[in-house]
Design a protein around this nucleic acid. Structure first.
Lengths: 185, 185
DNA sequence: TCCGTCATGTAAATGGTTACATGATTCG
DNA sequence: CGAATCATGTAACCATTTACATGACGGA
């Protein structure tokens, strides 16, 4: 799958839930998928033109007063979406700045490393909080909504990963404290 | 921090462990940092020229018979490295193809989702195996090696994350099985 | 000698962010 | 009216991968 079709995939997928403008699309991706996906305007608008050109989405008229362009998925778009979803997952090469620094932590010093890990712990806590909120939202939607179980699955992925991060942070903080004490002697 | 200095950071850091050629540098990054970092030749060689130009690294002569260029960190390079490490961590925007597909799993179908998660479980298992090997290696190096505790820290990060992934996969597989059964009726 | 690996590099294409420009709509 | 937000787009820039070209070296 070419990389740009990753954006197509996300846009088409988001439009399965509701017709949206480019702006709203971005907001929806940010708020609902923010933990594991991102798109910028510079990607979204060209994608909308492309997909519209190709007949995979179309303008959703009749919204009344609005001058803005609300897009809706076409039947062709829906089958293209499934096609894209079936393609092998292309993952971006990993680039974890925290672990890179820690791997060479001796050059940075144990105290600075400790600071980085403490920050990471705060981030994980924050993530856990926002996931708790997302879980409440997802659990309170209409139980007949076919999206609901899948939303919970992705929320749970975030929870597992954030909890693991917190445990690792705690373990690492004590390990670094031990290292700092032994360096001090 | 400009994005390119991320590569500089990785290259400088890797050279703290031992002098290396561009080729060996890439191999080392792949094998030791592969789980959380990556660099391609197209990045490494220009970086080596740049860093060499700037006096942060230099050719390590006297290796005997070799025609290849082995680079070594200069004192300036070492302080630049610490400077780079102290800069705020810039993280690439998330792009998790698996979670994107699962979030819109209703469009893909529960059975196909199950396949994706089963694959993810296998990946996590493999990761855990290779981390076990890395741990054995790291635990068997000279205990006086100042790098050792930091290597163990990053290995532990991988282990926590891989175990969390496995638990999530198991939980998700049973959830999807339930969903598949209920769809079948 | 021939193959595989070690080694160095470059050019094109890609994918993506960022910053900017512009204007409509809504609400106080 | 004025501010905030909604909305659409584009252009420049950046990092990065990929594919390719080239050749040395060591061992079967």
């Amino acid at each position: 799958m070419s990389r740009s079709s990753q954006t197509d995939l996300a846009v088409l997928a988001a439009l399965t839930v509701a017709p949206l403008t480019g702006y709203a699309l971005r907001a929806a991706i940010k708020s609902h998928l923010g933990a594991f996906w991102s798109e910028s305007f510079g990607q979204i608008y060209p994608a909308l033109s492309r997909l519209s050109e190709a007949g995979l989405i179309e303008l959703d008229e009749g919204q009344g007063r609005r001058a803005s362009s609300v897009y809706r998925l076409t039947p062709t778009g829906r089958s293209r979406l499934v096609e894209l979803m079936r393609e092998p997952i292309t993952s971006t090469p990993p680039r974890n700045g925290l672990l890179l620094r820690l791997f060479f932590g001796d050059a940075l010093g144990a105290i600075a490393c400790r600071g980085l890990v403490a920050e990471a712990r705060v981030d994980a806590e924050r993530m856990l909080d926002s996931l708790a909120e997302a879980r409440r939202d997802a659990e309170s939607v209409d139980p007949g909504n076919p999206h609901a179980p899948y939303w919970l699955i992705t929320i749970s992925a975030g929870e597992h990963s954030a909890r693991a991060a917190m445990h690792w942070c705690d373990e690492t903080l004590t390990a670094l404290d031990r290292l700092i004490r032994s360096e001090a002697t």
